[in-house]
């Protein structure tokens, strides 16, 4: 097994934690606004799980970094260019269908990733993954069911779901295209090989999309630049102005 470079390990942990943080915040934006009470509760619960997972990932990231920062510092005091989440999770909620489709695409990747991480050579990563995977099984069960219900629903709901899929499908590629960090993690047995995850993702996602009477757009174009921090979409900065406002305005505030 290859030796793990600590800077690359930190990068990897920030990717895991920033994905759950940014999506957790996005989903929490629905609190009090969802179309029915049960969905409101489900979305809030899922957001809560994701924020809880963030505390574990960014907590470990802060330890690895060793500069005396903690998970809250990383979440609330970094700026856009230091975030390492994939572009998919920072995309705006859109309508309810678009939120659910984004969730389904992320959940499907997340479940495959976490399942692979439960056998990580890094025991702390394996422990976080084992904890998170149980929660994410419930997330994907619900998002898949809801994608099918809306896709194979009324003409209106079908059209909205197809439009959401056309919009979001080009963000799928970034979750699977490995870079130097991903390659190093796979070589050291810290994380699974992303290429191998793609096969599982494609099989499971295509089954659900078929049942939902939805068709992914042609072509393999992928928006990239989120997980490397090279170029986030405009949306992330706007989100952070809300998410980080309190800690920026009143540094160190607690309640």
């Amino acid at each position: 097994m290859a030796q793990v470079d600590q800077a690359q390990l930190l990068e990897f942990l920030c990717r895991m934690g920033d994905n759950t943080l940014v999506l957790g915040h996005r989903v929490s934006e629905w609190c009090g606004h969802a179309p029915v009470l049960e969905e409101d509760i489900a979305l809030a619960n899922i957001a809560l799980d994701l924020i809880g997972q963030t505390q574990m990932w960014l907590g470990l990231a802060a330890e690895v970094e060793g500069k005396g920062r903690n998970a809250d510092d990383l979440a609330m005091l970094r700026d856009v260019w230091d975030f390492r989440n994939v572009l998919l999770v920072e995309q705006p909620n859109g309508d309810f269908g678009q939120t659910i489709l984004r969730q389904f695409l992320f959940d499907s990747w997340h479940l495959a990733m976490l399942t692979g991480l439960t056998t990580s050579t890094n025991t702390e990563i394996a422990a976080i993954a084992a904890k998170s995977v149980k929660e994410v099984q419930y997330h994907v069960e619900r998002s898949a069911e809801t994608v099918i219900a809306l896709g194979d629903g009324t003409a209106e709901s079908h059209d909205r779901m197809q439009a959401a899929l056309d919009l979001l499908w080009p963000y799928v590629g970034e979750m699977f295209v490995p870079d130097a960090v991903d390659d190093a993690m796979a070589a050291a047995g810290v994380a699974p090989d992303l290429g191998a995850l793609r096969a599982r993702f494609d099989a499971e996602v295509s089954t659900v999309l078929r049942a939902a009477t939805l068709t992914p757009p042609e072509g393999g174009f992928a928006h990239k630049g989120g997980k490397t921090g090279f170029q986030h979409s405009e949306h992330l900065g706007h989100m952070l102005t809300q998410m980080q406002w309190l800690q920026r305005a009143y540094p160190g505030a607690e309640w």
Binding site: E38, I41, A42, N45, D49, E135, R142
Partner: peptide, 13 residues
């Protein structure tokens, strides 16, 4: 089942 998610993270409705 009404929903797999409930009033607290550990419960379903």
């Amino acid at each position: 089942r009404i929903s797999q998610f409930g009033s607290t993270p550990c419960k379903a409705q």
